[in-house]
Structure formats: C-alpha cells, structure tokens
Amino acid sequence: MLEFHPVTIVLTIVNLLILYAFFRKFLFGRVNAVMEQRKAMIEKDLSEAEAENDRARQLQAEYEAKLSGADQEAAQIMADAKARAERAYEGRMAQAQADADLLTAEARARIRSEREAMLRGAKQEVAALAILAASKVAQRSMDDNDDRALVDSFLAEVGELR
C-alpha cells in the first residue's frame, strides 16, 4: 500500500509535464489569447469611440460658433436695412412735408390774392354804385375826379366805421 514505485513517480512527473505543456499551449494559451484579444479590441473600440466623441464635440463647437456668427451677421444686416429704410422714410417724409408746405403756401397766396382782387372789385363796384346814387341824388354826373375823390373818402370813412 505504501510502496513508492520510482517508475510510477517518474512517469507521473513526465505525464504532468506533458499535460502542463499541452494545456499551456492549447487550453490556457488559447483561451487567454482570445480574452486578451477581446480586451484589446474593446479598449480600441472605446478609445475610438472617445476620439469620435471628441471630434463630434469639436465639430459641434465649430458649428455653434459659425451659427452665432451667422446670427450676428443677420442681425447686422437687419439693423443696416432698418437704418437704411428709416433714412429713406424720413427723406420721403421730409420731401412730402416740404411739398405739402409749398402747396399750402401757394394755395394760401392764391386765395389771398383772389380775395384781394375780389375786394378791390367789390370796392370799385360799390364806389360806382355810390357815385351813381350820389349823381342821382345830385342830379348830375359825378364822374369827374373831384367827385370820385369825395366818394372814395366817404367810403373810407364808412369802412373805418365798420
């Protein structure tokens, strides 16, 4: 029962060494290699994804900068257009105002001159009527200059009284 057989011991050691070499190569070697490869692959994928992420973030920042630039540009254009429109509007308004003022002034001048002409005509008519009436009263014609002056002064008196 407790006999040590040198042959068995040596053969068992040889067996173990063979089995060790075999497993090292075909079992642990292969499985570990696959696990290492997977680890490397996952690490590579991760770093790639991170790089991709960084790139995307950079692009986003770039686009945002560009967008805000465009916004500013648009605002600038709008402001310019508004300013130009305002200027044009004001110019147009001033022109219109001036035209209207001119028209008003012309119309007013014409009205005044017409009124004066009418007044003058009426005055003459009244003077003629007065002279006619006076000559009728005096039974004589009052068309000479003295009489006309008289009537004019009379009329002026009457105008002052009124």
Binding site: F4, T8, V10
Partner: peptide, 10 residues
C-alpha cells in the same frame, strides 16, 4: 497510488 501523489507533491 501513493507514488502518484508523491510525484504531484514533488
């Protein structure tokens, strides 16, 4: 077999 375990122990 004690020879085998002896080899393992060695």
């Amino acid at each position: 077999d004690v020879s085998v375990t002896a080899a393992l122990a060695a």
